[in-house]
């Protein structure tokens, strides 16, 4: 396949994944804001913007942190190149540019998802319409993923699709954790006050992990188990370890198709060594924040190596 198309596919699914994760983050923030006082709500919205890397741009346009302003900015803000609408549009543009790499089912799912969002986000999002918009993002992304899973050949194209998906997901999980890392530090995790429990619950919800957590921990809430789930659990589909297992698998498949490995495989293996086989204590000893920042930059390095090895650009 063409290097340009591999690039387009890789990023199409990164955009879709990011759009979906952003919607999840907004939904969790919204819930938090509804159940807490105004101060906490403001802080929560600020941290959502920090996680997304949009705080600075937001404060240039707004001088408050009201939920409707933040959500509107993140979903469809004028001039916000990272808005969910832009993400979806980018995904669709890539799908169009790589039309012959995807099936009609995938194209129709992305195209329809984009048309729905474009219409829903044509006007400012109100509190009352927020949930409709968020679930449209999620279902658009879900449909595209489902169509991909159900209709695409497990060839090179698919490997780039999956590599992009899990690279983005790992990045997003790490960023969400990093903004809230202080909540998970052992020193602060004396038996959870209602405040902590609420914050922890929020972190889990941001990653759709609340249900998985309950099943694994039978209602006991503590920082250690949360870190265990979100970083190290092999079964939770948004944990760092899970994402890396999927990335390894897809890179290995590419190596098999091409008959050889390359620098991206070496970097991937190295990044994986820092993660797999670790315990929560190892990570806390190293320092959670440091661990996460290193993870994010190593993840980025793997993405760059993939782009170079597979000739994404000239």
């Amino acid at each position: 396949m063409l290097g340009r198309v591999a690039n387009g596919m890789f990023w199409m699914y990164r955009y879709l994944e990011r759009a979906e994760n952003t919607a999840r983050l907004l939904a969790a923030g919204h819930r938090m804001a509804l159940t807490r006082g105004a101060d906490i709500a403001d802080e929560e919205w600020k941290s959502v913007l920090t996680t997304l890397g949009q705080l600075q741009q937001y404060t240039q346009a707004h001088d408050d942190f009201s939920g409707s302003h933040v959500c509107d900015f993140v979903l469809r803000g004028k001039g916000n190149q990272q808005s969910v609408l832009c993400m979806f549009e980018n995904a669709r543009t890539n799908a169009r540019a790589c039309r012959s790499a995807i099936t009609a089912e995938v194209w129709e799912a992305v195209n329809e998802g984009w048309m729905t969002l474009r219409d829903l986000l044509a006007r400012p999002v109100r509190d009352t319409s927020l949930n409709v918009a968020l679930s449209a993002v999620r279902s658009g992304s879900t449909l595209a993923r489902g169509a991909t899973h159900g209709s695409m050949m497990r060839n090179e194209v698919y490997s780039f699709v999956r590599a992009g998906t899990f690279m983005e997901r790992a990045d997003n999980t790490a960023r969400i954790l990093d903004v809230k890392y202080y909540l998970l530090l052992p020193s602060l995790s004396y038996v959870g006050t209602p405040l902590d429990t609420g914050q922890w619950d929020n972190v889990l919800r941001s990653l759709s992990g609340e249900r998985a957590y309950r099943w694994l921990n039978a209602g006991r809430m503590d920082a250690r188990s949360i870190a265990q789930l979100l970083i190290l659990d092999e079964q939770f589909p948004r944990s760092l370890v899970f994402c890396y297992a999927a990335m390894r698998e897809n890179l290995a498949w590419l190596a098999r198709l091409h008959g050889h490995e390359g620098p991206a495989h070496a970097l991937m293996r190295e990044a994986d060594l820092r993660l797999t086989g670790k315990s929560v204590d190892d990570i806390f000893d190293q320092g959670l924040h440091q661990f996460l920042t290193e993870f994010i930059s190593r993840n980025q390095a793997v993405a760059n190596a993939i782009a170079q090895q597979y000739r994404f650009t000239t």
Binding site: M1, L2, G3, R4, A6, E156, L254, H258, Y310, R311, T314
Partner: peptide, 9 residues
Amino acid sequence: RVQMRTTQG
């Protein structure tokens, strides 16, 4: 020859 840039060269 006119050649296209693929993931394998």
